[in-house]
Design a protein around this nucleic acid. Sequence first.
DNA 1: GTCAATATTTTTGTATACAATATTGTTATT
DNA 2: AATAACAATATTGTATACAAAAATATTGAC
Lengths: 215, 215
Amino acid sequence: MDAKRADIIADSLEELVFKGEFSDGQRLDEIKLAENFGVSRTPIREALQRLVLSGVAEQIPRRGVFVRKPGPVELLEMFETMAELEAACGRFAAHRMTDQGIAQLKQSNCRCQDAVLAQDAARYYTENEIFHQEIYRGSANGYLEKEALRLQSRLRPYRRVQLRFRGRLAQSMAEHEKIVTALEAGDANCASNALREHVAVQGERFQQMIASLKD
Amino acid sequence: MDAKRADIIADSLEELVFKGEFSDGQRLDEIKLAENFGVSRTPIREALQRLVLSGVAEQIPRRGVFVRKPGPVELLEMFETMAELEAACGRFAAHRMTDQGIAQLKQSNCRCQDAVLAQDAARYYTENEIFHQEIYRGSANGYLEKEALRLQSRLRPYRRVQLRFRGRLAQSMAEHEKIVTALEAGDANCASNALREHVAVQGERFQQMIASLKD
DNA sequence: GTCAATATTTTTGTATACAATATTGTTATT
DNA sequence: AATAACAATATTGTATACAAAAATATTGAC
């Protein structure tokens, strides 16, 4: 996998940014990072480049790379895009999912249900991700799947916060049911719309949360 | 912009790959490239990393980076994804485009029409791209817009080939009209479907072309 | 004291040097 | 002759060195 230290460092840095160790706009000091990680500047620079290309940081030539945390607006945009990507996956999946794929999806959904019943938010969080990934896979479009996975991963830290919303889990499960039914029936439009809504709601909730924090 | 040589080299390399200077699976030799570009390995390595992250090449740790040209299947997948991204843009644009945006879109479409009448395929190619970009912009979703632009750019070399299809230009213009009408009417579903079809057709044509080449 | 011009220091970007790993070629054994 | 073990070579990944540019500090003029 990541045989290079640069990759490990990139992952670490991404993690640190999400964890809030760096403030928005902060310059990522190559030398300090090199010291912290106990390596030279070379692998640090490679890692930084990866952060830049994944959108976590921004590079200003001959000036440095700076942490770039998405604000509320961009976050909503990303959730909207995620909703559309998932809608697209659902559209294809409705026509292309194999019986085996559907079976796996149902199984995955059951595990979500289990987690809800067990009131285990952390497990629901994990199982829910897998549920969605099954649908990406079901699109039978490797490129789309990869893009969906990329954005899902990018939004991960922001989805996490929302699990606390009261009643969200139950509603989420109801939506899952609708999605599974539509996929099984091969109803592309219905699956697509259900998924779009299911994901878009998350973005909207996030906005609400931010708004409520402003008070 | 690109104050770094690494960026210039990355663009050059991408260009060279598309132009067919490298065969699929070929290893991109850091040392030879460094000699060719008259620089050291360092900026070459940075450029290669960019190619890898943009999907033009693949990296196998401790082994090298290799050109990775998409085959027919992946290309179709990419066109499908483009179609869905544009459909998403159209969906948002139908609700969000300003009068000014619509006006610009119409203007852009007129320039497409001009190019068709002038039988100027190259100009149509350019104007058509702008037309689509107006819609991305119209989605009023910067993130989605960026993603759409990225894939549009990635598919550029493959779209180029298709202009030669007889009658495609006229049909394409008819589809543009339908798209503009739907967007102006604020009909999200219609705009979305029209765009999806408009783009998806390109992927299918491409498949046909490849199939015909096999004979 | 404030501001501008210059000098100093930092920091980025690139080149080179070195270490670790993979690849290739050679030799020896069966 | 084929194959396995080992040596030689080449290539990647990392560290260090240096050059160019930017940021900061210092000095001087008003």
